[in-house]
Simulated assay, not measured.
Amino acid sequence: MDLKETDILGDSIDEHWYYCSKAAATRRLLGDQPIRRILDVGAGSGFFSHHLLTHTDAQEAWCVDISYPADSSASTAGKPVHYRRGIDAIDADLVLLMDVLEHVDDDLGLLKAYVDKVPSGSRFLMTVPAFQFLWSGHDDFLEHKRRYTLAQFETLARDAGLTVRCGAYYFGAVFPLAAALRLLPQGRQATEPRSQLKRHHPLVNAALKTLCRVELPLLSLNRLAGLSVFVLAQKP
């Protein structure tokens, strides 16, 4: 999760339609399989780790991000959260890379490095922005290197030595609107780097949440279109 977006949304991030919906999709894809220790790579504020510690049986989280000024520890829902600038091998059974791999030049190298740090059987839940043709000033603002198709992202996971368990697009319900804003001449985004994420009127926020909630039961079946790509994979 990018700290730039945390700065924009502030305390409202827990209620923002995008992050609420993404957290719900995360829980749905993970299912009921127990979670003991989370390794959250490029964690930023640790939003998704905090969410899983609060809403699942996950017991501990290690959040890794080079942007942290120093190593520290805290707790969420009475469970330990460790913030680290780097980490060696760790006995984590769930690895999160939530909108991380699009930020680095060598996405395969970074993913392989973390595959090597965890034991066999560890699950990887990963997201990236979808479709290069949707590139806009939002990507420039967040310093993205690329956007992905589902097929490209599944191939990346396999090349890193993972077995893909599920791959899907999400935010398909809002995809037509976002595509229109980015592609139509009268709505094309400005070329200057700026975030499209913002605080909405409560009614707008609620409507967008509802759209994404309706889509959620079909998440694992959506291989057609969306704003985000989700892949759940496992280290053999």
Rank of each mutant, 00 (worst) to 15 (best):
L3V: 09
L9F: 06
E15D: 11
Y18V: 01
S21K: 12
S21F: 09
A24C: 06
A25G: 07
A25W: 05
A25V: 09
T26L: 08
R27C: 06
R28I: 14
Q33K: 12
P34Q: 03
R37V: 09
V41P: 12
L52N: 00
L53C: 09
H55F: 13
T56K: 00
A58M: 02
A58G: 00
C63H: 02
Y68F: 15
P80V: 13
H82K: 09
V95N: 04
L96R: 00
M98P: 13
M98Q: 11
H103G: 13
V104R: 12
L108M: 05
G109T: 01
L110K: 07
G121Q: 07
L125C: 07
F131I: 04
Q132E: 15
F133Q: 11
S136M: 02
G137W: 01
L142D: 02
T149G: 14
E154L: 03
G161L: 13
L162F: 12
R165N: 08
R165M: 03
C166H: 06
Y169S: 09
Y169D: 05
Y169K: 07
A180N: 09
R182Y: 01
L183E: 11
R188Q: 12
A190F: 05
T191Q: 05
T191C: 03
E192S: 10
E192D: 14
E192M: 03
R194F: 08
L197D: 02
K198D: 01
R199N: 11
H201L: 07
N205L: 05
L211G: 04
L211Q: 04
R213D: 12
E215P: 09
L221A: 14
N222L: 11
S228L: 08
